[in-house]
Every structure is written in C-alpha cells, then in structure tokens.
C-alpha cells in the first residue's frame, strides 16, 4: 500500500495556499496537515491527488483563542493541543470530552481539527461536538472568506460541502453563557481509540428548578454523516430528569444507520438510544452539581 506519485509543495502563507488551490486547473490539489485521514486514503488509492500542499509551516492556521462567547480554533490545531488546552477544558467541556476519544496518542499528535472536519468521517468525534454546539467554519479562497454552518456541511460518508478552491482556516465554537451546564460523551468502539461504531455528544443547560432550558445533542456512526438530533433537542426543553423516555424515543426517527462489517443497523439503533440516554444522564448530573 503505497500512495500514487504526486508533486509536493510546502506552503508558507494562507495567500499562497489559496493561490495554489485557485490555479489548479485540471489538477486535483489537496491540502495536507496532519495527514491522519488523507494518507490512509492515499495509501489505499482512494485518493490520488496530483499535488499535495503542505500547510504545516503556516503557523497562522494553528491556535486556540478564547473570544468570550465563542472559542476560535485554527484549522491546523492538533487534536493533542485541544486535549491539553485549558481554554477548551474551561470553556468547551463537551469538546474536551470528545477529543479524548479521538484516535490514539500517536494520531492525536498529528491529526488536526480541520482535517477531521473536511474529510467528513461519519464517526469522527470533533465534528460531532462542533455540530451539536452549532459551530461555524471560515472558508477562504483568493476572493475572500465565507462563514458556513456545520448543519448541512456533511453530505455523506467522507463527502463534505467544501469546494476544491476553498481552504478551511477557522472553526468557531459557541460558548454557552448559562449558569448550569452539563455535558456527556459516550462512544462504543471495538478497541479503545478505534473508529466509533456509535458516538453521542450532549450538552444541556438547566434552569433553577432543574428543568432543561437548552439542549445540544449529536450522534455519529448512526447515519452516513454526523446528525444533530433537532427533534430530541426540542422535545427536551422544559422537561426534568424524570420525564425523558418519550423524548428519547424520538431518536429513532432522526437516524439512518447502515449495516457494515462492524455492526448491523439494528444494533446501531439500539446502541444509539442507549448512549443518548447515558449522555443525557451524565449531562444532567453534571449540570445539577
């Protein structure tokens, strides 16, 4: 398993990257950052780019910045940096829980948040957490920037709505200002750190009387791309811990799991319901503290 031949350019600025993407003509030019998704795809010849544009030297593309009502992640920020970040553990506890389930130490040291997002692996944890929290992303071309929502970005397994000339530069994840917030993240995989069979991310905010006032829940591995459970979120509002069963039953209508070598569709349905319930329980317990 060796990658097909390609030309290699080590870019030194965002402008240079955008220019190289704009000038591609008939060539397929791909960005390489951590390479933890792209390189296996190239080794298996599922990707055969003509040119790789290495963005690892562009320091502007990495970093975590607290902006009050949201946290900005440079697209090239390593998963390891997110795991070790105090800003993330203080401000985005759901992201902190999610990142601990991403791969292994060797892959988190290279893998980036941007790479996880643009490749659209259906079970990737960071895109799921970002989707739940209604994050947005900044896409750059030679002619300027656009801000795009996560909802609608994931088309199908390994297919996202990024254009060949666009560079993902930033991810902006909102920070909830509510006083009582709790989070839950649950995943099942065949081996610690492997691709999730099913993963669930939940963040809830409670009112003084312990009823739910805000809910963000997403699931990975239960459809061709990560899904935000809008109907469940809406049904949870105003409920307390004792009255959740009818809401959790709504999960079934929002997911569309497939059978593959790892699990059947029916198994994924059952596991999704269970993990949603566990993630909500954790979030409620944490918020009530």
């Amino acid at each position: 398993m060796k990658a097909a031949a390609f030309d290699y350019v080590r870019a030194s600025s965002v402008d240079e990257i955008c220019r190289l993407l704009a000038d591609a003509g008939d060539e397929e030019r791909k960005i390489i950052a951590g390479g933890q998704t792209l390189v296996p795809l190239m080794a298996m010849r599922m990707a055969r780019p003509d040119m790789l544009i290495d963005i690892n030297d562009v320091t502007d593309l990495a970093g975590i910045h607290d902006r009050g009502d949201h946290v900005v992640f440079g697209a090239g920020t390593r998963q390891r940096a997110i795991e070790r970040s105090d800003v993330v553990s203080d401000r985005l506890p759901l992201v902190a829980k999610a990142v601990r389930n991403v791969g292994h130490q060797q892959t988190r040291n290279r893998g980036t948040i941007g790479g996880s997002i643009v490749h659209g692996d259906p079970s990737a944890e960071l895109p799921m957490a970002a989707l739940a929290l209604e994050a947005t992303m900044i896409l750059r071309t030679v002619s300027g920037e656009t801000e795009m929502a996560f909802d609608g970005f994931f088309e199908a397994a390994m297919v996202t709505n990024i254009e060949p000339e666009q560079l993902l530069t930033e991810i902006r994840i909102p920070v909830w200002q509510d006083a009582r917030i709790g989070t839950g993240f649950h995943e099942t995989s065949s081996r610690q750190g492997d691709f999730a069979i099913v993963a669930v991310a939940a963040q809830l905010a409670l009112a003084e009387d312990d009823t739910i006032v805000r809910a963000a829940i997403s699931v990975g591995g239960a459809a061709p791309s990560p899904v935000k459970l809008h109907a469940l979120e809406a049904a949870l509002i105003g409920k307390s811990a004792e009255a959740l069963d009818s809401a959790i039953a709504l999960v079934d209508e929002e997911i569309d799991p497939d059978t593959d070598v790892h699990a059947t569709a029916d198994y994924r349905r059952r596991v999704t319901r269970k993990l949603v319930s566990r993630a909500i329980d954790d979030a409620l317990a944490e918020a009530a503290k």
């Binding site: 398993m1 990658a3 390189v39 296996p40 080794a43 790789l52 060797q106 892959t107 040291n109 290279r110």
Partner: peptide, 27 residues
C-alpha cells in the same frame, strides 16, 4: 499495516510519538 492502524511504525517526531507510515518523508 501502512495505513495507521497497527502502530508498529511509531517514532518520535519533535519528541512526540507519531506513526511514520502516515507521514511522507519530505514533510
């Protein structure tokens, strides 16, 4: 495995462990 699953190729890159099958040498 040559696609980032088995870990046999782990090396230190700037003192952090990585998989050397998931990086091109030119990088």
């Amino acid at each position: 495995c040559e696609h980032g699953v088995c870990g046999a190729c782990s090396v230190f890159f700037d003192d952090e462990p990585i998989r050397s099958c998931l990086m091109f040498a030119v990088q």
